[in-house]
Design a protein around this nucleic acid. Structure first.
Lengths: 141, 141
DNA sequence: AAACAATATTTGTATATACAAATATATGTG
DNA sequence: CACATATATTTGTATATACAAATATTGTTT
């Protein structure tokens, strides 16, 4: 059954959750070539672009809770893709050479995913929906 | 930081996930008066409207996996809000009197939530975004 | 300077959901 | 009819995420 035919298709809760689950699955597939989940990948991309960034700033950028950021970093650290240094209450996260070497492949995954999603409704409409979703998210606490 | 100002705000994965998390939280609040999570509530509303519906049909309507439906029903059964009868490979789910008595309060929660979301961007735009999300979800496997 | 408040991060635990395998039943085919 | 195949549901286990409390550090106020 199509999502738009479901009983609650016009409800924001239903449509947002259903879409997110499906998109999560697609993103998971797109990122398999580098062996990362989408959230690990996005976090690592930010760290690569902004070496030394702090967990709190990552939480803001990714709109995830600080505790989730800690868990994501832990796993990336296990996989030797980032290192953490802590001085006082400040923690900095840096990419390792291994992460830097992975960057080209990560860009391919990102492109692949973007192509997949924009291929569904066309770039214009896809971006418009993303913008609408972000705009709505802005209004929420 | 606003969602629309984040590095990946125009990425469908990022915006859909971020929105879904925020909406989930709002829905959770809206449904607290009846002590149900949003997914339990939506499932129960369908069962109330369509007594005897089977788990497979619930999975379709809610766009959730069959295993998730089983888990949701289990909890509603514990709380004496539904009963299951199984004959052969077919299972039917029925609302209890306790669930029927809860219906008016559930409707209030639903209205409350709808008012909250439509209050954010106005009904027209909210419904348009919901429709866009469902349309995009339709294109995904 | 001691006490207190604010900030940053981590840890323990809980929820929502899914995948894959297991189970049970039903159906079609030789 | 017997066996393979298809369907419906449940179970075991795993992932993604969050909340609340704990920890550690820094800044403020009297």
């Amino acid at each position: 059954m199509k999502t738009s035919e479901c009983r609650y298709a016009s409800c924001i809760y239903f449509s947002a959750s259903a879409l997110a689950r499906k998109v999560e699955k697609l993103a998971l597939e797109s990122w398999k070539p580098v062996g990362l989940s989408p959230s690990h990948a996005y976090l690592l991309l930010i760290v690569l672009d902004d070496a030394g960034i702090q967990p709190g700033a990552l939480a803001e950028q990714l709109q995830l809770s600080p505790s989730t950021i800690t868990r994501l970093i832990e796993k990336l650290e296990e996989r030797k893709l980032v290192v953490r240094t802590t001085e006082g209450k400040v923690t900095n996260v840096y990419p390792t050479p291994k992460a830097k070497a992975l960057l080209p492949d990560m860009k391919k995954c990102m492109d692949e995913f973007d192509k997949s999603t924009c291929g569904l409704l066309g770039t214009t409409e896809s971006k418009a929906i993303a913008a609408g979703m972000s705009k709505l998210a802005d209004k929420l606490p």
